[in-house]
Design a protein around this nucleic acid. Structure first.
Length: 270
DNA sequence: AAATTCTCCTGAAGGC
DNA sequence: TGCCTTCAGGAGAATT
Protein backbone atom coordinates (compact mmCIF):
# COMPACT_ATOMS: atom_id res chain seq x y z
CA UNK A 1 0.00 0.00 0.00
CA UNK A 2 1.60 3.19 -1.14
CA UNK A 3 2.28 5.60 1.64
CA UNK A 4 4.01 8.91 1.11
CA UNK A 5 7.50 7.37 0.98
CA UNK A 6 6.50 5.05 -1.80
CA UNK A 7 4.76 7.78 -3.74
CA UNK A 8 7.85 9.95 -3.46
CA UNK A 9 10.04 7.04 -4.49
CA UNK A 10 7.79 6.43 -7.47
CA UNK A 11 8.02 10.09 -8.41
CA UNK A 12 11.80 9.99 -8.30
CA UNK A 13 11.83 6.78 -10.28
CA UNK A 14 9.56 7.83 -13.11
CA UNK A 15 10.50 11.51 -13.43
CA UNK A 16 13.74 11.00 -15.43
CA UNK A 17 11.87 8.82 -17.91
CA UNK A 18 9.09 11.34 -18.42
CA UNK A 19 10.45 14.85 -18.14
CA UNK A 20 11.06 16.44 -21.51
CA UNK A 21 9.52 13.47 -23.37
CA UNK A 22 6.56 13.63 -25.69
CA UNK A 23 3.42 11.56 -25.23
CA UNK A 24 2.73 9.38 -28.24
CA UNK A 25 -0.61 8.14 -27.01
CA UNK A 26 -2.69 7.14 -24.01
CA UNK A 27 -4.42 3.77 -23.64
CA UNK A 28 -7.23 3.45 -21.13
CA UNK A 29 -8.40 -0.13 -20.62
CA UNK A 30 -10.49 0.48 -17.53
CA UNK A 31 -11.86 3.84 -16.56
CA UNK A 32 -13.75 2.76 -13.46
CA UNK A 33 -11.30 3.92 -10.80
CA UNK A 34 -12.27 5.92 -7.73
CA UNK A 35 -13.71 8.44 -10.14
CA UNK A 36 -14.19 7.79 -13.84
CA UNK A 37 -10.99 8.40 -15.79
CA UNK A 38 -11.70 11.38 -18.05
CA UNK A 39 -12.69 10.64 -21.62
CA UNK A 40 -10.37 11.88 -24.36
CA UNK A 41 -7.05 11.68 -22.50
CA UNK A 42 -5.39 10.36 -25.65
CA UNK A 43 -6.54 13.36 -27.66
CA UNK A 44 -5.65 15.71 -24.81
CA UNK A 45 -2.11 14.43 -24.27
CA UNK A 46 -0.91 13.15 -27.65
CA UNK A 47 2.00 15.26 -28.80
CA UNK A 48 2.28 17.02 -25.43
CA UNK A 49 5.65 17.28 -23.70
CA UNK A 50 6.01 16.42 -20.00
CA UNK A 51 7.23 19.52 -18.21
CA UNK A 52 7.68 18.02 -14.77
CA UNK A 53 6.66 15.33 -12.30
CA UNK A 54 5.76 16.66 -8.87
CA UNK A 55 4.08 15.42 -5.72
CA UNK A 56 1.65 16.96 -3.27
CA UNK A 57 0.81 14.65 -0.39
CA UNK A 58 0.12 11.31 -2.01
CA UNK A 59 -0.93 12.91 -5.28
CA UNK A 60 1.45 12.73 -8.22
CA UNK A 61 1.26 15.67 -10.61
CA UNK A 62 2.44 15.23 -14.18
CA UNK A 63 2.59 18.68 -15.68
CA UNK A 64 2.03 19.60 -19.31
CA UNK A 65 1.74 22.98 -21.00
CA UNK A 66 -2.03 22.64 -21.26
CA UNK A 67 -2.73 21.16 -17.83
CA UNK A 68 -1.81 18.55 -15.23
CA UNK A 69 -2.49 14.86 -14.88
CA UNK A 70 -3.32 14.12 -11.23
CA UNK A 71 -2.66 10.55 -10.13
CA UNK A 72 -3.41 8.91 -6.78
CA UNK A 73 -2.33 5.33 -6.19
CA UNK A 74 -5.01 4.56 -3.64
CA UNK A 75 -4.23 1.37 -1.78
CA UNK A 76 -2.99 -0.97 -4.41
CA UNK A 77 -1.83 1.25 -7.25
CA UNK A 78 1.62 1.19 -8.81
CA UNK A 79 3.30 3.01 -11.67
CA UNK A 80 6.07 1.42 -13.65
CA UNK A 81 8.11 2.39 -16.66
CA UNK A 82 8.14 -0.53 -19.09
CA UNK A 83 9.42 -1.11 -22.61
CA UNK A 84 6.82 -0.21 -25.19
CA UNK A 85 4.75 -3.16 -26.37
CA UNK A 86 4.96 -4.95 -23.01
CA UNK A 87 1.73 -7.00 -22.85
CA UNK A 88 -0.66 -5.76 -20.18
CA UNK A 89 -1.44 -7.96 -17.19
CA UNK A 90 -4.75 -8.02 -15.35
CA UNK A 91 -5.47 -4.71 -13.59
CA UNK A 92 -3.11 -2.77 -15.86
CA UNK A 93 -5.61 0.01 -16.47
CA UNK A 94 -3.78 2.87 -18.14
CA UNK A 95 -0.67 3.38 -20.30
CA UNK A 96 0.98 6.70 -21.00
CA UNK A 97 3.00 5.85 -24.09
CA UNK A 98 6.27 7.59 -24.92
CA UNK A 99 8.63 6.90 -27.80
CA UNK A 100 10.28 3.75 -26.40
CA UNK A 101 8.57 3.24 -23.05
CA UNK A 102 5.24 3.43 -21.41
CA UNK A 103 4.20 4.51 -17.95
CA UNK A 104 1.74 1.87 -16.80
CA UNK A 105 -0.77 2.15 -13.96
CA UNK A 106 -1.79 -1.07 -12.27
CA UNK A 107 -4.39 -0.94 -9.52
CA UNK A 108 -6.21 -4.17 -8.59
CA UNK A 109 -8.54 -2.59 -6.05
CA UNK A 110 -9.19 0.51 -8.13
CA UNK A 111 -9.12 2.88 -5.15
CA UNK A 112 -6.73 5.07 -7.12
CA UNK A 113 -7.55 7.99 -9.37
CA UNK A 114 -6.41 9.58 -12.62
CA UNK A 115 -7.77 13.06 -13.26
CA UNK A 116 -6.99 15.94 -15.57
CA UNK A 117 -7.08 19.62 -14.80
CA UNK A 118 -6.30 22.54 -17.06
CA UNK A 119 -5.93 24.88 -14.10
CA UNK A 120 -3.24 25.21 -11.45
CA UNK A 121 -3.39 21.79 -9.72
CA UNK A 122 -2.76 23.44 -6.37
CA UNK A 123 -6.19 24.99 -6.70
CA UNK A 124 -7.83 21.68 -7.56
CA UNK A 125 -10.66 20.63 -5.29
CA UNK A 126 -8.76 17.57 -4.02
CA UNK A 127 -5.52 19.41 -3.37
CA UNK A 128 -6.36 22.97 -2.39
CA UNK A 129 -7.30 22.15 1.21
CA UNK A 130 -4.50 19.77 2.07
CA UNK A 131 -2.37 20.41 5.14
CA UNK A 132 1.40 20.94 5.07
CA UNK A 133 3.92 18.41 3.84
CA UNK A 134 5.18 16.39 6.82
CA UNK A 135 8.83 16.94 5.96
CA UNK A 136 8.47 20.69 5.54
CA UNK A 137 9.13 23.29 8.23
CA UNK A 138 5.45 24.18 8.12
CA UNK A 139 4.73 20.93 9.94
CA UNK A 140 6.09 22.03 13.31
CA UNK A 141 5.31 21.34 16.95
CA UNK A 142 3.73 24.77 17.30
CA UNK A 143 1.52 24.12 14.30
CA UNK A 144 0.41 20.68 15.48
CA UNK A 145 -0.13 21.82 19.05
CA UNK A 146 -2.26 24.75 17.95
CA UNK A 147 -4.30 22.59 15.59
CA UNK A 148 -4.73 19.89 18.23
CA UNK A 149 -5.98 22.40 20.78
CA UNK A 150 -9.04 23.05 18.62
CA UNK A 151 -10.01 19.42 18.23
CA UNK A 152 -11.06 16.52 20.44
CA UNK A 153 -10.32 13.46 18.37
CA UNK A 154 -7.78 10.76 19.16
CA UNK A 155 -4.29 11.95 18.26
CA UNK A 156 -3.95 9.11 15.78
CA UNK A 157 -7.02 10.30 13.88
CA UNK A 158 -5.63 13.83 13.86
CA UNK A 159 -2.32 12.65 12.43
CA UNK A 160 -4.12 10.79 9.66
CA UNK A 161 -6.32 13.77 8.74
CA UNK A 162 -4.95 15.15 5.48
CA UNK A 163 -6.22 18.62 6.35
CA UNK A 164 -3.81 18.56 9.32
CA UNK A 165 -0.80 17.03 7.59
CA UNK A 166 -0.57 15.01 4.40
CA UNK A 167 0.97 11.63 3.81
CA UNK A 168 0.76 10.03 7.25
CA UNK A 169 -1.11 6.79 6.63
CA UNK A 170 -2.08 4.11 9.09
CA UNK A 171 1.28 2.38 9.21
CA UNK A 172 3.32 5.49 9.90
CA UNK A 173 0.80 6.92 12.34
CA UNK A 174 1.19 3.76 14.42
CA UNK A 175 4.96 3.84 14.17
CA UNK A 176 5.31 7.55 14.90
CA UNK A 177 3.12 7.40 18.00
CA UNK A 178 5.14 4.50 19.34
CA UNK A 179 8.38 6.33 18.73
CA UNK A 180 7.01 9.42 20.49
CA UNK A 181 5.61 7.40 23.42
CA UNK A 182 2.10 8.75 22.92
CA UNK A 183 -1.02 6.60 23.30
CA UNK A 184 -2.94 6.59 19.99
CA UNK A 185 -6.27 7.08 21.76
CA UNK A 186 -5.13 10.13 23.68
CA UNK A 187 -7.41 13.09 23.04
CA UNK A 188 -5.40 15.46 20.90
CA UNK A 189 -6.06 18.62 22.91
CA UNK A 190 -4.50 17.02 25.98
CA UNK A 191 -0.98 16.74 24.63
CA UNK A 192 1.68 19.20 25.71
CA UNK A 193 3.76 21.26 23.32
CA UNK A 194 6.81 19.29 24.41
CA UNK A 195 5.14 16.01 23.46
CA UNK A 196 3.98 17.48 20.16
CA UNK A 197 7.63 18.27 19.59
CA UNK A 198 8.50 14.60 20.04
CA UNK A 199 5.66 13.50 17.82
CA UNK A 200 6.50 15.85 14.96
CA UNK A 201 10.13 14.74 15.15
CA UNK A 202 9.02 11.11 15.10
CA UNK A 203 6.81 11.57 12.05
CA UNK A 204 9.64 13.26 10.16
CA UNK A 205 12.16 10.64 11.19
CA UNK A 206 9.95 7.68 10.28
CA UNK A 207 8.98 9.10 6.91
CA UNK A 208 12.48 10.21 6.02
CA UNK A 209 13.88 6.79 6.86
CA UNK A 210 11.20 5.09 4.82
CA UNK A 211 11.88 7.30 1.80
CA UNK A 212 15.54 6.41 2.09
CA UNK A 213 14.70 2.71 2.14
CA UNK A 214 12.01 3.04 -0.50
CA UNK A 215 14.77 4.41 -2.63
CA UNK A 216 16.72 1.22 -2.28
CA UNK A 217 13.86 -1.24 -2.49
CA UNK A 218 12.13 0.46 -5.40
CA UNK A 219 15.14 1.73 -7.28
CA UNK A 220 14.45 -0.81 -9.96
CA UNK A 221 10.96 0.44 -10.64
CA UNK A 222 10.59 -1.80 -13.67
CA UNK A 223 10.57 -4.94 -11.63
CA UNK A 224 7.45 -7.00 -11.63
CA UNK A 225 6.34 -7.03 -8.05
CA UNK A 226 7.25 -3.61 -6.69
CA UNK A 227 6.75 -4.87 -3.15
CA UNK A 228 8.15 -2.34 -0.74
CA UNK A 229 10.85 -3.89 1.37
CA UNK A 230 10.69 -1.28 4.07
CA UNK A 231 7.31 -2.57 5.17
CA UNK A 232 8.43 -5.78 6.72
CA UNK A 233 11.70 -4.39 7.99
CA UNK A 234 11.85 -1.85 10.77
CA UNK A 235 8.22 -1.78 11.83
CA UNK A 236 8.11 -1.59 15.63
CA UNK A 237 4.36 -2.00 16.17
CA UNK A 238 2.33 -2.18 12.95
CA UNK A 239 1.25 -5.74 12.30
CA UNK A 240 2.75 -6.89 15.60
CA UNK A 241 -0.32 -6.99 17.84
CA UNK A 242 0.26 -9.48 20.67
CA UNK A 243 3.99 -9.66 20.00
CA UNK A 244 6.42 -8.28 22.60
CA UNK A 245 7.13 -4.55 22.66
CA UNK A 246 10.65 -3.95 21.39
CA UNK A 247 11.23 -1.57 24.30
CA UNK A 248 9.68 -3.25 27.37
CA UNK A 249 8.75 -6.76 26.21
CA UNK A 250 5.10 -6.59 27.18
CA UNK A 251 2.60 -7.79 24.57
CA UNK A 252 1.51 -5.02 22.19
CA UNK A 253 -2.17 -4.22 22.30
CA UNK A 254 -4.38 -4.03 19.23
CA UNK A 255 -7.54 -2.04 18.77
CA UNK A 256 -9.34 -0.01 16.14
CA UNK A 257 -9.49 3.74 15.79
CA UNK A 258 -11.70 5.05 13.00
CA UNK A 259 -11.93 1.61 11.36
CA UNK A 260 -8.16 1.37 11.25
CA UNK A 261 -6.02 -1.26 12.86
CA UNK A 262 -4.12 0.32 15.73
CA UNK A 263 -1.24 -1.28 17.60
CA UNK A 264 0.50 0.20 20.62
CA UNK A 265 2.26 -0.57 23.87
CA UNK A 266 0.09 0.10 26.89
CA UNK A 267 3.15 0.74 29.04
CA UNK A 268 5.42 2.75 26.76
CA UNK A 269 2.69 4.90 25.25
CA UNK A 270 0.70 7.23 27.48
C1' DA B 1 -18.37 22.88 12.69
C1' DA B 2 -16.74 18.68 14.15
C1' DA B 3 -16.96 13.84 14.68
C1' DT B 4 -18.29 9.50 12.99
C1' DT B 5 -19.69 6.15 9.63
C1' DC B 6 -20.07 4.61 4.95
C1' DT B 7 -18.26 3.54 0.52
C1' DC B 8 -15.59 1.96 -3.34
C1' DC B 9 -12.68 -2.97 -4.62
C1' DT B 10 -9.98 -7.37 -4.81
C1' DG B 11 -6.53 -10.48 -2.95
C1' DA B 12 -4.99 -12.82 1.05
C1' DA B 13 -5.92 -15.45 4.96
C1' DG B 14 -8.62 -18.26 7.89
C1' DG B 15 -12.35 -21.68 8.89
C1' DC B 16 -14.58 -25.89 7.96
C1' DT C 1 -8.68 -29.41 -2.14
C1' DG C 2 -12.12 -26.11 -2.40
C1' DC C 3 -15.51 -22.98 -1.20
C1' DC C 4 -17.09 -19.59 1.82
C1' DT C 5 -16.45 -15.60 4.96
C1' DT C 6 -13.76 -11.98 6.85
C1' DC C 7 -10.60 -8.40 6.64
C1' DA C 8 -7.46 -4.73 5.10
C1' DG C 9 -7.22 0.10 3.82
C1' DG C 10 -7.05 6.03 1.42
C1' DA C 11 -9.83 9.37 1.85
C1' DG C 12 -13.86 11.72 -0.05
C1' DA C 13 -18.89 11.54 0.74
C1' DA C 14 -22.63 11.02 3.58
C1' DT C 15 -24.59 11.12 7.98
C1' DT C 16 -25.08 12.26 12.81
Amino acid sequence: MPELPEVETTRRGIAPHLEGRTVKGVVVRERRLRWPVPVGLDRTLRGQRVQGVERRGKYLLIRFASGTLIIHLGMSGSLRVLPAETPPQPHDHIDLCLADHCLRLRDPRRFGAVLWTRDDPREHKLIAHLGPEPLSDAFSADYLHQYASKRRVAIKSLLMDSKVVVGVGNIYANESLFMAGIHPQRTCNRISLARCERLVAAVKQVLAAAIEQGGTTLRDFQREDGKPGYFAQQLQVYGRGGAPCVACGRPLKETRIGQRSTVYCGRCQR
